[in-house]
Design a protein around this nucleic acid. Structure first.
Length: 636
RNA sequence: GCUGGCGUAGCUCAGUGGUAGAGCAGCUGAUUUGUAAUCAGCAGGUCGGGGGUUCGACUCCCUUCGCCAGCUCCA
């Protein structure tokens, strides 16, 4: 009899061919009862899988990441059955699990929102029937016969390596059969908490030249309360959408007259400037110089830099004196000309040259998205020119700079990705090795967790990316540190070494916020518009209770304004409650109420955005407190 | 760029072929307020633009512009 070992248990003997489902039934513990699949040694399999030999078994439940994937993958099959039963001419294609749920793509005319509701209803009916999911192995010929009227499945079957076992999953009485590697839950009735979220077009194999399919997105959970929590989180995310808050808080706007080009209003400009000042201040502390290079430069420069070949589609062009010019999509060529404008000694290096450069890129109209994806934005760019020996120290300093900045805003740790040498690249093996090693060393010296993306580096060098996630869990590239072997060659950059000969410096590109615009968008969503005091456009508002307190309110205003606080008086002829409410909605950090008591005592009554009334403090004390909070860029 | 959805007052939204509505915001007045909405009045729209069908179009059709979602996740 095969011997089965479960985690933390004594091995047991079971009769040959015992299924994992039977084993689960005979095993105490909720883990086995909740199982959707199981690991047999190194293989994740269905619960119907028979035990034939000695093995280790670990049941997985929807609480495990791989179990949740199985659960959602089965949910996608459930969706597919519902769709084909309601729309018999729909051809299912693929239905994978994604980060946030699952989807299934169908070749069919577009589905409406009403269709989605009907499909969901049908899914519930199928769940109520409580049908089992059966795995079956078939030959390639049988598979071709079974899916003869589905060209997508046929294409997939043909793409499978010869000799590979082909499996299909049948739902109940062959009500629906799908080509699938599995594993799956054994019973569709397990899937009780699900919701179809949206429908959208997507291309077969993600290629715009192929047929446009209809993609239905859904989410499912084992427990209804998990689904409720997820839907509530989506609703909260919608409330925090920076496009909505940007309009409500009067920060920025977009206009037909310039699609994808943000207009910064007075309040938004405060945020933008504070952010830029923060970066400038940190650059100063870290030994950078700041430069400014032109927005428009001639075509020859862009050919020389290689942007023309790799980037022309995204560039804007303009003729000046009948000579072709381009609007800069990146700052580096300008920065390189600055470096080349004089001779450099090894004693000058490293040169850290920052530029808050406004770049323009012609993004496809369909991908524009608030401040997250625009056609003109400011990069907090910098180029570091150094010797090979200085490379690691510079990389460490850059990573540290990034971490410091993200920390200042209280972002959860960014996802760090090291991208290595791609197939198509320039530079010798040795130079790639040195550079990749430097980036790796930098990350390891700071003891940071990172993911390696093999072959994802730029053609001109390896890089480290810092990705942060917005409140909808979408990932946005933020900081980047790139080693560049190409530009110093193309522009023949040199420095005089101690040996009296010319040497080629190493060049690093880096951006920390990436795009100031995008970063502000992320920050707005992250804070739900309640910005930290130092970067907040409305730091304080004085509210006199009645007309007789107006003069005192003005006096308090003057003192705060003199101390550099962004403050205003709301002396409108409205009730106190209404003006407090207005200040709350505008996310003013400090609401300062002035009435008889305050006027008499020379104090002000402090209320903060968290609905807490703190009581009266003297104006001097308040100023001191705000000064400190601003100076240390406090998060609260 | 492609596919689908949506464009009505500054904002949020009603209005399915027969004279364009509400709340908030704005303005005027009353009210002088102790911590998230005082009351009353007034004003505000070429129903995104253009074309068509119709006696008549916010409503139906075509077209165009903009916005929104998706277009990486591989049986």
């Amino acid at each position: 009899m095969p011997q089965v070992t479960l985690p933390d248990r004594d091995p047991v003997d079971v009769p040959a061919h015992t299924s994992l489902a039977e084993l689960a039934r005979n095993t105490a513990g909720t883990r086995a009862k909740r199982a959707v699949a199981a690991w047999i040694d190194e293989r994740l399999v269905d619960l119907s899988h028979p035990i034939e030999a000695d093995c280790r078994v670990r049941f997985v439940t929807p609480a495990d990441p791989e179990g949740l994937d199985v659960f959602r993958h089965s949910s996608a099959h459930l969706l597919a059955e519902a769709v084909v039963s309601l729309f018999p001419d729909a051809r299912p294609t693929i239905g994978p699990v994604v980060d946030e749920g699952f989807y299934y793509d169908f070749d069919h005319a577009p589905f409406s929102d009403e269709d989605l509701l009907r499909i969901e209803e049908r899914m519930r009916a199928i769940v109520a029937e409580g049908r089992p999911l059966h795995r079956r192995e078939i030959s390639a010929d049988q598979a071709r016969e079974l899916f003869r009227d589905n060209r997508y499945k046929l294409e997939m079957i043909d793409a499978l390596p010869a000799g590979e076992t082909i499996t299909v999953y049948e739902q109940g009485n062959r009500a629906f059969v799908d080509l699938c590697r599995g594993p799956h839950v054994s019973d569709l009735s397990r899937i009780k908490a699900f919701k179809l979220l949206k429908v959208a077009g997507a291309y077969w194999r993600a290629d715009a030249r192929n047929t446009m399919l209809q993609r239905i997105y859904g989410i499912s959970f084992e427990q209804p309360k998990e689904l409720r929590a997820h839907l509530a989180a989506i609703a909260e995310a919608k409330k925090r959408d920076h496009r909505k808050l940007g309009r409500e808080l009067d920060l920025f706007s977009f206009h037909e007259e310039g699609q994808g080009f943000p207009f910064w209003h007075g309040r938004g400009t405060v945020i933008y400037n504070e952010l830029a000042n923060f970066i400038r201040e940190e650059c100063r502390r870290r030994g950078y110089t700041e430069v400014r290079t032109p927005t428009i430069l001639n075509e020859e420069l862009w050919r020389r830099s290689g942007h023309w070949d790799h980037y022309a589609d995204a560039m804007y062009f303009v003729d000046i004196d009948e000579k072709p010019h381009a609007v800069k999509p990146m700052n580096c060529p300008g920065g390189l000309l600055v470096y080349r404008s004089r001779l450099h000694s090894y004693r000058d290096l490293p040169i850290r040259q920052a530029e808050l450069g406004l770049v323009h890129r012609n993004e496809l109209s369909g991908v524009l998205h608030g401040l997250f994806r625009v056609r003109a934005f400011t990069q907090d760019d910098a180029h570091v020119f150094c010797t090979h020996e200085q490379l690691i120290d510079e990389v460490v300093a850059l990573i540290d700079f990034c971490q410091y900045v993200y920390q200042t805003f209280g972002f959860p740790p960014a996802e760090i990705v090291l991208s290595t040498r791609p197939a198509d690249c320039i530079g010798s093996d040795q130079i790639w090795e040195t550079a990749t090693h430097a980036l790796r060393q930098g990350l390891e010296r700071l003891d940071l967790a990172y993911r390696v993306a093999e072959g994802e580096g730029a053609f001109y060098g390896p890089k480290i990316d810092f990705d942060i996630r917005d409140c909808l869990k979408r990932k946005w590239q933020c900081g980047t540190i790139q080693v560049d072997f190409s530009m110093p060659e193309r522009f023949d950059l040199t420095y005089e070494g101690p040996d009296g000969h010319s040497h080629r410096p190493v060049m690093l590109h880096r951006a920390i916020l990436g795009s100031l615009e995008r970063f502000i968008g992320v920050l707005i969503e992250h804070t739900a518009g309640k910005l930290p005091l130092w970067i907040s456009p409305l730091q304080a508002r004085v509210i006199p209770i009645t007309e007789r307190h107006h003069a005192y309110a003005q006096e308090v205003h003057r003192q705060l304004a003199d101390a550099g606080v962004r403050v205003a008086v709301d002396a409108r002829d409205e009730t106190l409650g209404k003006r407090v409410r207005a200040a709350q909605l505008e996310k003013v950090n400090y609401i300062l109420v002035a009435g008889d008591k305050e006027m008499e005592a020379g104090t002000i009554n402090v209320r903060t955005r968290d609905n807490v009334v703190h009581g009266a403090v003297t104006v001097d004390e308040l100023i001191e407190r705000l000064r400190q909070e601003i100076a240390c860029r406090a998060l609260v």
